[in-house]
Amino acid sequence: MSISQATVDVCNISEVSTNTRKAAKSNLNKNVIYLPGTDCAIKSQVSLSGHTSYRVGGPAEWYVAPRNIEMLQASIEYAKEQQLPVTILGAGSNLLVSDRGLPGLVIGTRHLRYSSLDPDTGLVTVAAGESIPSLAMEVAENGLEGLEWSVGIPGTVGGAVVMNAGAQNGCIADILVSAQILLPDGTLRTFTVEEMGYAYRTSKLQGSKLVVTQATFQLQPGADPAIVTATTKRNKEYRLNTQPYDKPSCGSVFRNPKPYSAGWLIEQSGLKGFQIGKAQVAPRHANFIINCGGASAGDIFSLIHHIQSHVQEHWSIALEPEVKMIGEFLAI
């Protein structure tokens, strides 16, 4: 069992803490800041539209993409020294960022990548920035069962752990052993699955200042790699054939209000194809809102509220968004 990780310069936390106090005012006037002793760059006014699957969103006041845990710790320490609010951004696949952008420091975790798997025990440890679909294919090719359902989820491990991502009657809570969490004070702690407080599409981490850095899953070893890979590929093809992945979206917009599915309620309300600006209820799957090209976050936000009010009127059911909306939006 081995872990591979790209070699990079490591931030020294105590050095960062001391030097940032001295350079606080001058640093914040620069367009690019390098944390002392590293090539870890914090950039100003970075558009977030390229960092979300919706392809919308205004600029981050400051943006950094650390490549290892030490750089992540240093970035959070820097934000603390500068009294900047912090937003953690993975693949941006379950996110709607305001057109006005986000204040403070946005930390992108998609470059935190490494994986370790043991084909004998089925234990798999992966960094928060690893792609869920890529991980599903990797473990399948090694004869490990348990992630076949996840191949169509367009997100990262970190985001999946936080929101208890799921599909086809499977979810993260079913396979998670533990998660390594970065606490607000900069220290790392391992949380067991019992400590995560999992429920349908949520965990105790949502809305907190706790940051997932890696996760360990228990999969089932000993399967025929060809069979597991074939099943995983079939699941991917099914998702591609039934859901609109040809245009930018965030995946499912609303949680399913059991015993109904949100998509069925929206479709039966006559909203398939309904459009506000360049945001549209997908004709292929009504629980998707797609960016038809040039949509704003405001268009999508308005369409979400229109759907909610329409379904409430027709079915007396309040649809709860699964997509996380961050930043300032105009009240509707």
Rank of each mutant, 00 (worst) to 15 (best):
K272Y: 10
P133S: 03
E148T: 10
I317A: 07
S116K: 14
L303Y: 00
D174F: 00
L112T: 01
E15C: 00
Y200L: 10
F329W: 08
Y238G: 06
V212F: 04
V311P: 00
K204S: 15
N291P: 06
G58N: 07
I69N: 13
I76T: 05
P221T: 07
S115A: 07
G92E: 02
N68Q: 08
A223H: 02
L123F: 10
P66I: 04
G277F: 15
T20R: 13
I332L: 09
I69Q: 14
A165D: 07
Q275P: 08
F274H: 13
H305L: 04
S2I: 00
T18M: 14
L84Q: 12
L95G: 04
I13D: 09
Q312R: 12
Q218A: 05
V193A: 14
S134D: 02
T20H: 13
N94E: 01
Q268K: 15
K22V: 03
G146E: 09
S208P: 12
G108E: 15
A215D: 03
I332R: 10
S44T: 03
A24P: 05
Y34I: 00
T20L: 13
S53E: 04
L188Q: 01
P225D: 00
D39M: 10
N235E: 14
P154H: 13
T202V: 04
G251M: 07
P221K: 15
A318M: 12
V64T: 06
V162E: 01
K22M: 12
G197A: 14
Q218M: 02
N164E: 02
K233E: 15
A127P: 11
A297C: 05
T52D: 00
A262Y: 14
L265S: 12
I181D: 15
L183C: 05
A23L: 10
L95A: 03
S309A: 11
S252N: 09
K30P: 04
P184S: 08
T87Y: 11
A160Q: 07
T87S: 09
I276K: 14
H306A: 02
F301T: 05
P248I: 03
R284E: 10
Q73K: 05
K247L: 13
A128W: 05
P36C: 06
T213G: 10
A23C: 10
E267Y: 09
Q206A: 11
L105T: 00
G129C: 08
S75A: 06
A215I: 15
T156L: 02
Q280I: 00
S252D: 07
S17T: 05
P59F: 14
G293Y: 01
L117N: 01
F274E: 04
G166V: 10
M325C: 11
G101V: 01
N68G: 02
N256D: 15
S47N: 08
P225Q: 08
E138A: 07
